[in-house]
Structures are given as structure tokens and as C-alpha cells.
Write a protein that binds this DNA or RNA. Structure first.
Length: 590
RNA sequence: GAUCCCGUAGCUCAACUGGAUAGAGCACCCGCCUUCUAAGCGGGUGGUUGCAGGUUCAAGUCCUGCCGGGAUCGCCA
């Protein structure tokens, strides 16, 4: 343990040794940030658990630990409080040293995973023929945050958008186009090609045709049978259908790439369900040969129920009775593909919580088939985006809110806010638009990511694009103020110097900086980006208080000025790191 | 019907997996720009954590039962 270790770790080690000396578990010594900043910097609750175990008075045990802690260099005071809480305050010297170490570290105290893994993150999951709307936001921003976090922690990450391009909806669309434009060569089985390069439908057409087709398929059984047939024909390679389908995919992808660019989200792979297709026949044959797949009511299924199940666990449908592959089969095929090309040790699926059962089935089947142990596959579900009525969000006219409309609205609000603040006279038009967009994206991402991943949340447009209080723009604002400070310091030839922590606001800021790695571990272990958001916000808050309480450039004492500047710059580095992990970029000014 | 999730300030959300006085933001009230960006800072009002029991030194958190909301339950994804 060196001085550059996290403060909590340093203290935990000392307290842990004291517990171990009593023959107890060293883990009881775990120290954490105090719930009572008025009493202490850190606290340990292990003495009470230990007291219970040994049947001894917890305060007595705590006394021994406190004595040991008082021997630690960094500790200014250690006390027992209440039933056996251990409260520790650190010396200003220790905090100064820690702050200096953080300031000198390019990773701002962030650790790395002990043994990096090959990780696939499957998110986005948009469907062909559907424009991205508010409902697609969560998978996209959560998945993107996780890929950034996992990479930062040292894992080797491959992200895959896994487009929905292969199911029944493709058959539905083909038939719908056929109804509108029956003369197209794609429907002529005798046509020998070549098929036109130009798509017969635009994205707007698809956006209209898809719901239309889907509605018919739902109510009209004969139509549904035709759709199934078309799907099966597409999958078995009917050339006209394939050619038409490729147009659907291409037309859709243009729009999706636009949203991705706008949000700053990148994927390593733009694969889809259809890419699993080549892997499926061999898989099916293999599962049949080994008796894992069974024929049931015309469909090939794999049973995944277990004796210990408390709930009903339906089998997966590997091949349906029409001979088509549904999403069970394509997900298995995708796993085969990934195993052969990447051999991931962990695959994360960032998909709506409502599909939890589906993934449980697929993971069990994967395990049963001997492809991968279940433990290597994780479904990271997330809640739905609801309106005030608790149902999936709809706009006033009952439609869905398209993602580009949401972004455009946020852009406009940000631009208006900038005009109001009279930022602009000296800023070129192009940069102004860029700043407004960064602010808008920060607002949108932070609003979404700061909710606990697994729960539903209520969407309110005004709140989503608001720029005051606990919002993305607040975080940018904190960062921008430091950048402005840095420019002024550079202009006046002031350079950062050794950090010396004196004021309460400085102590609080350093303790917050020190908590970074803990937040990282929490977010990584639980796959919960909101923990990063919480840390970023608390850090920005601590900085804002410091900024108000401790003048930097106006400070006449050169040593203090240099110390505060160094602390501010260390904060900026960490703030930009955390914001980067949730996919938020900071402008130079705003 | 079965299984699972949720219920915390007027509103939107946290709470480090059982710890001290349940925290933020919005809204509301009071202060703070001749000093580094007021998209800010400081202070205040606001709580029987859905209800009732139980487990123990300690429960928003664990167990049981209710009430209310949501999701899922083989050929859609």
C-alpha cells in the first residue's frame, strides 16, 4: 500500500489487520466515505458485526481497531461512536498527498481489471424499416457507455449493433410493398435480373408501410400465413426477395448512421440477425444428431426447463413449423458466429427488460448445446421509457417521438440558451452550433443514464432538455469554467504547483476525487452507468463549491494560487474522463 | 392463474446490498454578480420510505400477508 492508493483502501487495510489480529475476517475493516461528513471523512461498521459474531461488546472491539488506526500516518483522528461506528478523519497532509498523486496520474486514480477479457457488447438492436425513436435511446446510450467503460478498464471489447433484419417483419414488409407496387421485378419469380440499383421505397415509405403491414398481419390470419411464407422464402434465398430486402436494409442504415453520428456512438460491427443465418443449418443438424433438438408439432425445439424452476419455462423454437428461423434460432446462430470469430469470455446483451425470459431460454440452450457456459452470457435489461400515465411514451398526437426530433429540439433549446447568455458575438457560427449540439447531447444522455438501468422512468421532454440543476449541461459548465480558468492562467503565466489542502471545500473536493475508482468499480461490476453519473455530478458539485469558496487567479498568495490551480486542473481531468465514459464530450466554452 | 419488477418530499429520482439525523434536482421562500462563465454558490420549507406484522443492537433495504401499478408466460421480436 502506497500513498497513492485510494484513501479508503489504505484505511481498510489498517482496520482489516486489526480485525485479523483478533482472529476475525479482515473484510470487516472495510472503510467507506462517511454518511456523516460533520463527524468524519470515513467510517467502518465492521465492529458491530464482529461483536455479534463473538458475543462481545462492539465498542470494545472498535476500541482496539481505533488504536490501530491512530497509528496510521494519514489519520488525524479516529473515534468510536454510537453502538460501535468507527469514525476517521484524515490529516490535511494525507489529503494533500493524495490530491497530488491524483493530479499526477493520467488516469486520475482509475484502476484496471486484473485480467482483461474478450467482451462482446450487443446493443442498439434497431429494426430495419423502423426509424430510431425515444424507445431506442436507452439501449444505445447504456450500451455505448458500457463499451467505453469496459475498454477503459482494460477489457478487449467488440460492440455489435445486431440489427433486427431477419424475422417475420421482413416478410410482412415484402408483402406490403407487393400490394402497393405489384409490378416490380422482385415479385416475378421468373425474372432473371439484374434488379434495379435504386430502392423502390424510401425511409419514409418504410416508416409508413411497416405499421400498416404489422397491423394487417395481427388481425388477418390469411395475411399472416402469407407473411410467414414470404419470410421463409426470403430466408431460403429467393433472389427477388433478397434483392428487395437489401434495399430495405440499406435505406434504413443511412438513417441509423446519421443518428449514431449525431449521438457520437460507434459500433465495431454492423451485423444483423441475418448474419447468423449461415451458421444455423449446421447447428440445427448437430443438435438434432445429439438429440438435443426435438420435433414438436412440426417445429424443432430445444427444451430448457429445469426441475428447480419455479416458473414455467417454455422451450426455444429453433426452427418453426414453416421451416423459418425466428429470433431464438438467430440468437443461437449469432453466438456460434461470435464464438468462431471472437471467442468472447463474456457477452453482454443490452436489451429491454421485457425480453428477460427470452434470454434466459437462449442462454440455457447455449449451455445445453455445449456452445458456452451460461455464466459467460448476461442480459442487461433496462426499463421502458414511459409517459406520465405509466405507459410507453407517446407524443401529444399519440405518435412516437423520433430520435432526430428529440435531438433537434434539444439543439434548438441549447442554442436559445446560449443566445440568452450572450455567448456568441466572438464565437464563429460553426463553433456555436457545435457547442449547442454538445450541450444538447449531454442533456439527453445524462437524463437517460442517470436513471438506474433496470427501472422504468418517466419521460418529460422539458425536463429532458433542461439545463439547470442535476443535468448534463451542469457538468459541462463545471468543466468549461475550469478550462476558462486554465486559459487565463496560461495567459498570465501562472503554473500549477504543489497541492496543499486547507479549506473545507478543498477537503471535500479531494475526497470526491478519491472516490472515482470506487465509482468505476461499482459501475463496472454492476454494469450500471448511473453510478458514473452520480460520481460526475457529485464531483462537479464539489468543484462548484470550491470554485465559489476559493478564488484561484484572484488569490494573492502565489503558493495558494498554484495549489488551487493544480487542484482545479486535476478535477478537470477526472471530470472529462468520467464524462467520456458516459459518452459526453465537453466543449471549450459555452 | 403463475412468475418477476416497482411503490421513497408536491413532481422526477438516489441511497455504496442490514448501519448513525433517508439524500439530490425541479418547484417554493431568503441571501449572493465593480473579483476566475449566475447554465452558478450559500441558506430555508418540505418524509409514518404504499399498509400491517415479523427477524435483531440496528430495516427504505431481509421474511410473511395484504393494497396499488407494470411486465412476462412455445412457433412476433
Amino acid at each position: 500500500m502506497t500513498k497513492t492508493a485510494e484513501l479508503a483502501d489504505l484505511l481498510s487495510a489498517a482496520a482489516g489487520n486489526a480485525f485479523a489480529a483478533l482472529g476475525l475476517d479482515a473484510a470487516l475493516g472495510a472503510m467507506r466515505r462517511s454518511d456523516r461528513p460533520d463527524l468524519a471523512d470515513f467510517q467502518c461498521n465492521g465492529a458491530m458485526a464482529a461483536g455479534k459474531k463473538l458475543g462481545k461488546n462492539p465498542r470494545e472491539i472498535a476500541d482496539g481497531v481505533v488504536t490501530a488506526l491512530r497509528g496510521v500516518d494519514a489519520v488525524a483522528s479516529a473515534e468510536v461512536a454510537g453502538p460501535g461506528f468507527i469514525n476517521v478523519k484524515l490529516s490535511a497532509k494525507a489529503l494533500s498527498a493524495r490530491a497530488q498523486a491524483l493530479a499526477d496520474d493520467a488516469r486520475s486514480g482509475a484502476g484496471r481489471v486484473a485480467s482483461p477479457r474478450r467482451v462482446v457488447i450487443d446493443f442498439g438492436g434497431w429494426n430495419v424499416a423502423k426509424e430510431m425513436h425515444i424507445g431506442h435511446l436507452r439501449s444505445t446510450v447504456i450500451g455505448d457507455s458500457l463499451q467505453r467503460l469496459f475498454r477503459f478498464m482494460g477489457d478487449s471489447v467488440t460492440s455489435d449493433v445486431h440489427l433486427g433484419d431477419w424475422g417475420l417483419q421482413m416478410g410482412q414488409l415484402i408483402n406490403e410493398v407487393k400490394l402497393e407496387q405489384p409490378g416490380l421485378p422482385y415479385f416475378d419469380a421468373g425474372f432473371t435480373g439484374p434488379y434495379p440499383d435504386q430502392s423502390p421505397v424510401t425511409m419514409d415509405d418504410l416508416g409508413r408501410l411497416y405499421p400498416q403491414a404489422s397491423a394487417k398481419s395481427k388481425t388477418d390470419e390469411a395475411r399472416r400465413d402469407e407473411d410467414r411464407k414470404a419470410t421463409q422464402e426470403l430466408q431460403s434465398g429467393r433472389p427477388g426477395y433478397r434483392a428487395l430486402w437489401r434495399h430495405f436494409c440499406n435505406v434504413t442504415r443511412v438513417g441509423l448512421e446519421r443518428e449514431c453520428a449525431s449521438l457520437g456512438v460507434k459500433f465495431d460491427l454492423w451485423k444483423g440477425e441475418s448474419d447468423a443465418e449461415p451458421f444455423i443449418p449446421a447447428l440445427v443438424e448437430d443438435l438434432k444428431a445429439r438429440g438435443i433438438a426435438e420435433l414438436d408439432a412440426g417445429a424443432w425445439i430445444v427444451r430448457v426447463a429445469r426441475e428447480t424452476d419455479k416458473k414455467e419455462m417454455p422451450p426455444i423454437i429453433l426452427v418453426n413449423r414453416d421451416g423459418a428461423i425466428g429470433y431464438h434460432g438467430s440468437d443461437l446462430g449469432t453466438i456460434v458466429d461470435r464464438k468462431q470469430s471472437i471467442d468472447p469470455q463474456l457477452t453482454l446483451y443490452v436489451v429491454d427488460q421485457r425480453q428477460a425470459l427470452h434470454f434466459e431460454q437462449v442462454f440455457r440452450a447455449t449451455d445445453r448445446a455445449g456452445l458456452m457456459p451460461e455464466k459467460m452470457l448476461e442480459h442487461l435489461g433496462f426499463g421502458t421509457v414511459n409517459g406520465a400515465d405509466g405507459k410507453p411514451y407517446k407524443t401529444r398526437d399519440g405518435g412516437v417521438l423520433k430520435l432526430y426530433e428529440l435531438i433537434a429540439q434539444a439543439d434548438a433549446t441549447a442554442a436559445a440558451r446560449m443566445a440568452e447568455a450572450e455567448l456568441g458575438a466572438d464565437v464563429p457560427e460553426a463553433e456555436r452550433a457545435d457547442i449547442a449540439h454538445k450541450v444538447a447531447v449531454a442533456a439527453i444522455k445524462f437524463s437517460d443514464l442517470s436513471n438506474v438501468r433496470t427501472t422504468n422512468y418517466i419521460f418529460d421532454l422539458d425536463r429532458f432538455v433542461s439545463f439547470e440543476g442535476k443535468t448534463g449541461p451542469y457538468l459541462l459548465y463545471a468543466a468549461v469554467r475550469i478550462k476558462s480558468l486554465a486559459r487565463r492562467a496560461a495567459g498570465e503565466g501562472v503554473t500549477p504547483g504543489p497541492i496543499s489542502v486547507e479549506l473545507d471545500a478543498e477537503r471535500a473536493l479531494v475526497l470526491q476525487l478519491d472516490a472515482f475508482n470506487d465509482a468505476l468499480r461499482g459501475a463496472y461490476d454492476k454494469r450500471m452507468p448511473h453510478i458514473l453519473c452520480e460520481h460526475a455530478y457529485a464531483l462537479a458539485q464539489a468543484f462548484s463549491s470550491f470554485y465559489a469558496a476559493a478564488p484561484v487567479m484572484a488569490e494573492s498568495d502565489a503558493v495558494k494560487r498554484a495549489s488551487r490551480l493544480a487542484l482545479a486542473l486535476a478535477t478537470l481531468r477526472q471530470l472529462e474522463l468520467v464524462l467520456g465514459l458516459v459518452g459526453i464530450e465537453t466543449p471549450e466554452r459555452m
